[in-house]
């Protein structure tokens, strides 16, 4: 699958949110290309437009100007080619864990959705939890179900909107490692929104450092850490050097916004 599908091309995206006096330029002239199988992180302080950018790729928001193409095809609305893993509360509470994961395969008319659900719940380590409702699962388990649900339709592009933001630090690291294991398996193009510097560096091939007001991409940082990534890389010199560089950029940007307000 790697290398063939999942080319994402954004050209000169502009988005205005709100109307009249409260209108803000959420994104201004954002262009980016993501090659098939690449893992990109969108990093920035809150309000920099990173989630808006993800929603534009997902087709939830129609940009005022510019265009989004996935595999050369214009994105005009949400599609099953690029599902989203949300930060929280997005599992359907009226369906069991297995029901949630089987939902996408059912909608797409894939054969035996229940078997697909079992397979993907197994992949995220929740093989025995299929009959539980989201209300019966912990925060980390719910996000694993969310991940399984998005992956079960074998997406070309996987979009994640701060999926681990609400989890405790230890669970978050384990979730990052799980995400990478699953990504190594399928190599779907991945766009990951986060405000956590270390998370962005540990996961991504490239980190887009975003700036706000108006939202734009300020710098691209290449993460030249060998794959598959391992937890001990977090403490290595390469990682720490990149962290220092990104940290400087983000801090500068946060400070600018902080002082303006």
């Amino acid at each position: 699958m790697a290398g063939s599908r999942g080319l994402v091309e954004l050209s000169a995206i502009g988005v205005d949110l709100g109307t009249g006096i409260r209108a803000t330029r959420a994104l201004d002239d954002v262009s980016l290309d993501i090659v098939p199988g690449e893992f990109v992180a969108l990093l920035g302080p809150s309000g920099c437009g990173k989630t808006t950018l993800l929603n534009v790729i997902a087709g939830f928001i129609k940009p005022g100007s510019g265009s989004v193409r996935i595999d050369r095809k214009l994105v005009t609305g949400p599609s099953a080619r690029c599902p989203v893993v949300f930060q929280h509360h997005s599992l359907f509470p009226w369906m069991t864990a297995a029901g949630n994961v089987a939902f996408g395969p059912e909608m797409l008319g894939l054969p035996d959705p229940a078997a697909i659900a079992r397979e993907y719940l197994g992949l995220v380590g929740l093989a025995g939890q299929g009959t539980k409702y989201p209300g019966q699962l912990s925060g980390g388990q719910r996000q694993r179900v969310g991940l399984a649900r998005a992956l079960s339709i074998r997406p070309d592009v996987l979009l994640l909107d701060e999926p681990f933001g609400a989890l405790d630090a230890m669970t978050r690291e384990l979730m990052q490692e799980l995400l990478l294991t699953l990504w190594e398996r399928d190599r779907h193009t991945t766009v990951f929104v986060t405000h956590d510097l270390e998370e962005a560096i540990f996961l991504a091939d490239r980190v887009a450092v975003m700036a706000g007001q108006p939202g734009r991409i300020r710098a691209w940082i290449e993460v030249r850490l060998p794959r598959p990534r391992t937890p001990d890389q977090r403490h290595g010199a390469v990682f720490q050097n990149i962290l220092a560089e990104v940290s400087g950029l983000v801090r500068e940007e946060s400070l600018r916004v902080f002082q303006e307000v």
Binding site: F60, P78, A80, F86, H89, G104, M107, R149, I153
Partner: peptide, 28 residues
């Protein structure tokens, strides 16, 4: 919830499925 609708749409749900599988149980 907007997230439920969006999640369903990007998993391939069309109008009828949105109504029966998302709106109806949300409203139940």
């Amino acid at each position: 919830e907007a997230d439920h609708l969006n999640a369903a749409r990007c998993l391939g749900a069309e109008r009828w499925a949105l109504l029966m599988r998302i709106f109806l149980p949300s409203a139940l």
